[in-house]
Design a protein around this nucleic acid. Structure first.
Lengths: 194, 194
DNA sequence: CTGATTCTGGATCTATCGGTCCAAAACGAC
DNA sequence: GTCGTTTTGGACCGATAGATCCAGAATCAG
């Protein structure tokens, strides 16, 4: 019909997401987004709407990526190995992408319950992660990899909590070895047998 | 000599700290600080310098409050009871002050390693907390309240991590009961005897 | 090639940002 | 009371925020 776009929308969203992830919503200006995405200002507004809408789209994209990462945890036979894989992948991703913590959790802390749609997106993704963890924990319990009297949901909340706390540990002067020991301790206290 | 101030500096710092705590550095405008403190714009600048200096002063004030809260943990006979007391107090404080998480950890995540002085302040306070936790953990181990093969420092890092993660759990839709269960699990996995 | 449509990028808008200026007000020293 | 000093609050500053306008470039259908 007319002139086609010169960019890939998903790729642009990835870059915008990374910018928000690194510097937060308030800490990211539209100029920053223009620089990060390589798009012109107007193209950005045409495609996504205003800054807030772009942020929501970035949260959406983050949710999609989270779904990918959680896929192994949701398999029928998921267990302790998948949990370990997920934790390692999450930590590795934050290192390679040079981001601290989880985007949705950081957004929840930064923006509070101020915006309804942000709040909804944050809750949805966080719940998705907890659900994935719970499923794999339940699998590990069922097959005896974890021996515990706690409910899988409880352990999932616990894993979620400690994982998110790691960013705070790493961001306040602790080194990688300290973080690794905390992860070890976390898995141990999960109640794994052997 | 001349006209005296119409405000109490410490009280003003408390209010400014609370504002930063609730909305972060970038999310707080000088106008917000004027409204929160009740001071005039110029009085604020006269007393504290620019926004960044006021933020650093607020971090300093936060550190002083943290020292107060940590005092029981540093007593000679500190142990598990003091650990529990500290955790309860920290959680209660966040509820009454309507703040999510720890100010210094949030600042570390929001501002990264961007500013040298913020980074130093954040590390100092975080280390202070970990030191307090470590001391009480060591006391608890010495008196048999905790049975573990882990070093106190390691357990302190673990407590620090999980405590900081609680804000993320609470901020993403989990209710109070879930958080309480995580705290229970945290203390249990500390290795307490009985 | 022409026309209709979409995309692009620089100019531009208003509001607000952090920060300063300055004159009037309020005190203590004398 | 008078003087010198400090505080105070409103006006004001340039810079930048998010957002829009608009003219020209680019493309496809016919």
């Amino acid at each position: 019909m007319a002139r086609p776009r010169e960019f890939d929308e998903a790729e642009v969203l990835d870059r915008a997401m990374l910018q928000f992830w690194r510097h937060g919503y308030e800490g990211t200006s539209v100029h920053d987004l223009v620089a990060a995405t390589g798009l012109g200002r107007q193209s950005l507004y045409n495609t996504f709407g205003d800054k807030q809408a772009l942020f929501l789209a970035a949260l959406e994209r983050y949710d999609a990526k989270a779904r990918d990462m959680l896929k192994p945890l949701l398999r029928e036979d998921a267990g302790l190995a998948e949990l370990r894989g997920y934790v390692d992948a999450a930590i590795a991703l934050q290192k390679t992408s040079r981001c601290r913590g989880c985007l949705v959790v950081r957004s929840a802390l930064e923006l509070g319950a101020a915006d309804r749609r942000v709040r909804a997106a944050v809750r949805r993704t966080a719940q998705r992660v907890r659900d994935g963890l719970r499923h794999a924990v339940a699998g590990a319990v069922a097959r005896g990899e974890i021996v515990t009297r706690r409910a899988p949901e409880e352990l999932a909340d616990y894993l979620f909590t400690t994982l998110n706390g790691l960013a705070g540990l790493a961001g306040t002067g602790a080194d990688e070895a300290q973080a690794r020991r905390v992860v070890d301790l976390m898995f141990e206290s999960l109640g794994q047998a052997g």
